[in-house]
Design a binder for these strands. Structure first.
Length: 229
DNA sequence: GCCAACGTTGGC
DNA sequence: GCCAACGTTGGC
């Protein structure tokens, strides 16, 4: 099993995860239900709703992974796009996600949907490639393995907490799109309006699996053919 | 169920 | 390496 994705978020003790339903509706509300239920039994994976509360569905995603070596609990977290390309069939399971919001987004993913492969926690953060979902969410086995950096002693086999999906490399972007460049658009769009004004990359910067609206995905895609700013 | 302390993410 | 932002923990 190849190491994959941001394997952050230490296993925590305590089982209280989704107690506080402040503003994290999707997250916590679903968590209560999800804990008692096999997530995959849940009806139609709704593609969620726009962050704005409107109904624009999230059909696109952004997934963060670290392209540079970093040792966590004795394991190298490095998994850049080149590592994905080196996998059999260029497919990898996105294990190690230990954040409820990110997990829930993975549970919303459907086969065939596209995601940006984002390089994080590195010299030049930004989007490197496009991948697609090739397997819907299933149990992340690494939560039960003591040797895994993201072993979770609070998760039981009868009622697993964490899920993952499989992604497959689609193509590199024509050019790397740096975070800094998207940030400039984000700031501009915040004041003057535009597709990136609410993009999760900045409004929920710490989320390792994020939804993108079609408008956001399309706009970022157009940057490929534009000169860097 | 509030909220202070703590831990993690991830840009810079 | 620093540290702001923010999610999680757990006492009360």
């Amino acid at each position: 099993m190849p190491p994959k994705s941001r394997k952050r978020g230490k296993p925590k003790k305590g089982e209280r995860a989704a107690k506080r339903a402040k503003k994290v509706q999707i997250d916590t509300a679903e968590e209560q239900i999800a804990e008692g239920l096999d997530s995959n039994e849940k009806t139609t994976k709704s593609s969620g709703k726009g962050a704005s509360g409107t109904k624009e569905p999230f059909s696109f995603w952004l997934m963060k992974s670290e392209p540079e070596s970093r040792i966590e609990n004795g394991v190298d977290m490095k998994f850049g796009v080149e590592d994905l390309k080196a996998e059999p069939n260029q497919i990898a399971c996105w294990d190690g996600v230990r954040n409820y919001q990110a997990r829930n987004f993975m549970r919303d993913m459907m086969v065939g949907q596209l995601a940006f492969f984002y390089h994080s926690n590195c010299k030049e953060p930004g989007i490197a490639a496009i991948v697609k979902i090739v397997k819907e969410s299933y149990v992340d086995h690494t939560q039960f393995e003591k040797k895994e950096p993201h072993y979770d002693c609070t998760s039981k086999k009868e009622n697993p907490k964490w899920s993952m999906v499989d992604v497959q490399f689609v193509r590199m972007l024509k050019r790397f799109i740096p975070l800094a460049e998207m940030k400039k658009y984000h700031q501009e769009h915040k004041t003057q309006g535009g597709p990136l004004k609410n993009v999760a990359l900045f409004t929920k910067a710490r989320l390792s699996v994020q939804p993108l609206t079609k408008g956001e995905f399309d706009f970022i895609s157009t940057l490929e053919d534009k000169k860097p700013i």
